[in-house]
Design a protein around this nucleic acid. Structure first.
Lengths: 151, 151
DNA sequence: ATAAACCTTGGAGTTAAATCCAAGGTCAAG
DNA sequence: CTTGACCTTGGATTTAACTCCAAGGTTTAT
């Protein structure tokens, strides 16, 4: 079991942050010592790791709480409910991956264009690099941008 | 050219948000009308789209400003500087992608475990699903978690 | 030429997510 | 048996990123 300070050090967060997560229902220490100290189990640590990772890829604490609530505890969740929530989150995750792969390929292009590659100095900013890769736009925007682009 | 309200509608943000981005150096309209109205060009729109996307995958406005500053404008940036910044950002993006792929595979596992798949009811929460996929941990944490896991 | 729907600025208020602070309890080391 | 490094709580403050408001100027449609 970890005391709050140990867990905080381990994951490079502040103890205050852990108490904050507790107050907001994201991570409660599974036990307390006699004196009232929070004691975190291995599972708690696992959960914290998940929270930190999810935050790093742009999920809000609310989103994360929802992800963590996905537990097929049979009494409270129908199977279809779980599946619905999971699949929604999965779509969000996949959308994010798609965005990032786009970024990655553009940054790559930029990096290569920069130092003497065959396309040298052709794409000099992230925006130009993105543009050169762009095939699809958000439906709402597509019409406008294309309209102007031809004119 | 778009007036601020048009651009805002187009991208489903508030006009206040656009002024906020301007104040913080992320997106300045390329011109103003005689009366002082902001007029946004196609390039400005492109830039806004980039900002919105970058935000969606967990970059802060500061991160984004840095990404946007990557411009090989020859006078101010040495080639190596650009490459350095780009490659740093590329690493961040790739790390995020790795995280998300992890999430995705776990959510998938969860979704399948849920409704009568072969692993039915085996991984009942996102945490269990993650754990079942887990091979690598952050180096800092690895030792501790494994140590306890064996004991 | 006037109302409705835009736009301007400056500044205040909100929300999420921490982060800090104060007053005090606990515990291992000397 | 006290010093120092922990921990507790409750509440205040900060930071990022908006979001709203007020007082006033502009444009457009009737």
């Amino acid at each position: 079991m970890y005391r709050i300070g140990e867990l905080a050090t381990l994951f490079d967060v502040k103890t205050d942050t852990l108490r904050f997560y507790e107050k907001h229902g994201l991570l409660t220490s599974s036990t307390r010592s006699e004196a009232g100290y929070r004691l975190y189990s291995q599972d708690d640590a696992q959960k914290l790791r998940f929270i930190i990772r999810a935050k790093a890829v742009g999920f809000s604490l609310n989103d994360i709480a929802e992800l963590l609530s996905i537990e097929l505890d049979k009494a409270n969740w129908a199977c279809a409910d779980v599946k619905g929530l999971v699949d929604t989150k999965l779509e969000q995750v996949q959308a994010k991956i798609a965005e990032l792969e786009f970024f990655a390929s553009s940054l790559n292009k930029l990096s290569q264009a920069c130092c003497g590659g065959p396309d040298s100095a052709e794409h000099c900013s992230i925006l130009e690099a993105l543009e050169s890769t762009d095939k699809e736009l958000s439906p709402k925007v597509e019409h406008h941008l294309h309209a102007e682009k031809q004119g």
